[in-house]
C-alpha cells in the first residue's frame, strides 16, 4: 500500500516538475516573441535636440536584451525612474537592478556576479573592482551630500554637535560602506577643526554608535522608525523619507562631497546596451532625472 502511495506521489511530482519546465519554456518563448512595440515619445522634459541625440540612429540594429546594473542603495529611486525613461527609448532593452551597499556589490562583482554595469557611491569601492580587473575605467556621473537625519519628533538631537551628547542613539552605515566612510570622514574633519567641537568629538560620537547598518537605506529606516535618534545619510535619501525625518545640515566646513563613479564591466554580454545606459546617465536627460532626485552633476 505504501509502495503504491509512493508511486503516486512520485508520478505527481514528476508531472508537476514537467509542467514547471514546460511552463518556464513557454514563458520564455512568449517573452522572446514580445517584440519591441513602436517607440513612443519620451519624457516631455527633454529638449528635442537631446531626445534626438539619444534615440537610436535609424539603420543601426536596435539594442535589445537585458542589462544588469549593480548600483549603490542610494540610487534606488533615481535609477528606477531613469530606467523607465531609458526603456521607452530602447524598447528592446530591459534594465535589471541589484541594489546594495557599494562594498557588498564590489565583493559580488569580484566573485564573478553577472553584472554588466557597476554604479558605486564612492571611488574606493570602484577602485576595488578595477584593481581586481573586473573593469577598466570609470566615469563620475553624479554627486551627493551627506546630511544628518533625526526622527521628525522627539529626538534628543537638534544640531550636529548634539551627536556627542551622552545617551544619543546613533546609527551609521558600516565603515566599509561608502556613506559610513563619509560619515566618519565628517567626524574626523569636525574633530580636527581648530574652532570645532573639540579633538575628541569623533570618539565621543562613535561611543554613541548603536549599529553599523549594511547600507544607507538601513540607516534611514532605523531613523524613520524612531529606533535611532540620529543617522547620517545622503541628501537624496533624506528627501525620499519626506516628513518622517528632520534634516539637519552638516556644517559645510566639515562636510564632504560623495562622488559616484560608474563603469561597464569587462567581458559581459550586451556591452552595447550597457554602454547606452551609461551614456544615457551622462546625457542631459539622464542628469535631469538624477537632479530631480537631488543628485548633483559631476564637476566638468
Amino acid at each position: 500500500m505504501s509502495l503504491a502511495n509512493h508511486g503516486t506521489i512520485f508520478l505527481r511530482a514528476a508531472a508537476l516538475s514537467l509542467l514547471a519546465v514546460l511552463g518556464g519554456g513557454l514563458a520564455q518563448a512568449c517573452g522572446g516573441e514580445d517584440d519591441s512595440p513602436p517607440p513612443t515619445a519620451t519624457s516631455g522634459a527633454s529638449t528635442p535636440a537631446t531626445a534626438m541625440a539619444s534615440t537610436p540612429t535609424p539603420g543601426l540594429v536596435p539594442l535589445r536584451g537585458e542589462i544588469v546594473v549593480f548600483a549603490a542603495s542610494s540610487l534606488i529611486d533615481a535609477f528606477k525612474a531613469g530606467a523607465e525613461v531609458f526603456e521607452t527609448r530602447h524598447p528592446g532593452v530591459k534594465v535589471t537592478f541589484n541594489f546594495a551597499s557599494s562594498s557588498a556589490l564590489a565583493t559580488q562583482i569580484n566573485e564573478g556576479a553577472p553584472a554588466g554595469v557597476f554604479a558605486s557611491a564612492d571611488l574606493a569601492q570602484m577602485k576595488n573592482v578595477i584593481d581586481k580587473g573586473a573593469a577598466a575605467e570609470s566615469t563620475i556621473f553624479a554627486t551627493n551630500v551627506p546630511v544628518l537625519v533625526t526622527p521628525a519628533k522627539g529626538s534628543a538631537v537638534t544640531s550636529f554637535e548634539d551627536l556627542a551628547k551622552p545617551g544619543v542613539r546613533l546609527v551609521l552605515a558600516g565603515p566599509e560602506v561608502p556613506i559610513g566612510r563619509y560619515s566618519r570622514q565628517v567626524l574626523d574633519n569636525a574633530s580636527a577643526a581648530a574652532s570645532g567641537p573639540g579633538p575628541d568629538f569623533g570618539k565621543r560620537v562613535l561611543d554613541n554608535l548603536k549599529s553599523n547598518e549594511a547600507n544607507v537605506r538601513g540607516v534611514l529606516a532605523k531613523v524613520q522608525l524612531g529606533e535611532a535618534d540620529a543617522g547620517i545619510v545622503y541628501t537624496t535619501d533624506a528627501a525620499i523619507a519626506g516628513s518622517d525625518v528632520k534634516v539637519i545640515e552638516i556644517p559645510l566646513a566639515w562636510n564632504v562631497t560623495a562622488e559616484y563613479p560608474i563603469a561597464i564591466l569587462k567581458d559581459r554580454p550586451n556591452a552595447a546596451a550597457a554602454e547606452a545606459w551609461v551614456e544615457f546617465l551622462l546625457s542631459p536627460d539622464g542628469q535631469a532625472v538624477l537632479r530631480e532626485f537631488g543628485f548633483g552633476s559631476p564637476a566638468p
Partner: peptide, 18 residues
C-alpha cells in the same frame, strides 16, 4: 554582532573582508 552578522558584514566589505 553575532557570527551570521559578522559574516554578512565581512562579505559586504568590513575590514575582515571576504
Amino acid at each position: 554582532q553575532t557570527m551570521p552578522l559578522a559574516i554578512i558584514s565581512a562579505f559586504e566589505g568590513s575590514s575582515l573582508g571576504l
